[in-house]
């Protein structure tokens, strides 16, 4: 069997996989793994989004992959370079937990749900349909998107692996 190549995406990072490669990010907590897939070209993209909105950035030049509102346009650009068409893109996402839900509901603790909301708004703005989602809860997730099939595998400690 041919070993599939795995493209890794770090925290506050994004990347693109083609030609049957898989793309993967590990240990999502309140962060959201936002994925886009062009089934026609079999091109897959993934962003590990950490924060909802770049308006809070206190740095002069910031990493666009970190914020939901800047990560999506950047991911689309990278996918288009790899041959994808925005009109064909389908989105799936996972993550956005509240890891320590018992601590309460202050705004900074709700970062996971806010990341999810912000990703949804951005997808809506770009008219990209969200066809699969495994978000919320209070557990970590590792996700992997297969660029051949477009299947998103979501693994967690308690619940094993799900397919989206």
């Amino acid at each position: 069997m041919i070993q599939q190549n795995v493209v890794k995406v770090g925290m506050a990072d994004l990347n693109v996989a083609t030609r049957g490669e898989c793309i993967r990010t590990s240990g999502l907590g309140s962060c959201v793994g936002l994925t886009l897939y062009d089934p026609d070209r079999k091109v897959a993209g993934m962003a590990h989004v950490m924060l909802p909105d770049s308006a809070i950035a206190r740095e002069e030049t910031f990493n666009r992959a970190k914020y939901a509102d800047t990560a999506l346009p950047l991911l689309i650009e990278e996918l288009e370079k790899a041959g994808a068409k925005i009109g064909r893109l389908l989105a799936k996402m996972a993550g956005g937990s509240q890891m320590f839900a018992s601590l309460g509901k202050s705004d900074s603790l709700r970062i996971g749900p806010r990341n999810v909301e912000s990703c949804m708004q951005m997808l809506d703005r770009y008219g990209i349909p969200l066809i699969g989602e495994d978000t919320g809860g209070s557990h970590g997730r590792t996700i992997e998107l297969d660029s051949e099939t477009g299947i998103l595998y979501v693994r967690s400690v308690q619940q094993g692996t799900k397919e989206l």
């Binding site: 925290m11 506050a12 240990g27 907590g29 924060l51 890891m99 970062i111 970590g140």
Partner: peptide
């Protein structure tokens, strides 16, 4: 608060205050 989970998911929670300043 306690959690038994993936190290990345747990520790990233403590990094949010840094998120808006850098990587």
């Amino acid at each position: 608060a306690v959690a038994l989970d993936m190290a990345g998911a747990v520790l990233s929670y403590g990094l949010m205050q840094y998120g808006e300043m850098g990587d």
